[in-house]
Amino acid sequence: MSRAPERGGARFAILKLDETALVLPQSEVRAIEAADDVVLQEPPAGGVGWIAVAEHRWPVYSLTRELVPSGQPARSRRMCALLGTGGQLFGLLCDEVEVTALDPSAITPLPDCMQLAGSPVTAIARRSGGIACVTTPLRLSRLVGLPAAAPAAARRAA
């Protein structure tokens, strides 16, 4: 995990998926694990496997840089960010996680004509050398098809 120089502003985590960067409030990233620790057997529907954290196991998903769910993650996805949606967590594979501060003025809502139903992107943040897409765990969970209430999702790790 890289850590950007300290600056003012709220703390965010930036998850990198190839050239695509996703931004979430840092508090919504519950844990960061190595992708090697993901158990690939019997993956959840639309997912790639399971990760065990704090005596529970959570479904893990992967997205392409176009934010399309993929059952075959790219080799660059070496980390697994555990994201929270209320009491339900899920893992998202990513290349890198950066924790940084973002000035709220650097974030602008997604223009009307760029909005697609089901898109996880709610806003755009400008950062040096490009942009990052602001999202939420809830939107990502809908994108990957995580069931609203999945009893199997929080089974105790064997």
């Binding site: 050239e19 176009e66 934010l67 997604l110 760029m114 909005q115 898109s119 996880p120 755009i124 490009g130």
Partner: peptide, 16 residues
């Protein structure tokens, strides 16, 4: 201009 994923094909870039 910067590409934005999961946007319509006619509006998938932003310019600052």
């Amino acid at each position: 201009a910067f590409r934005v994923p999961y946007a319509p094909p006619y509006a998938n870039r932003v310019l600052f």
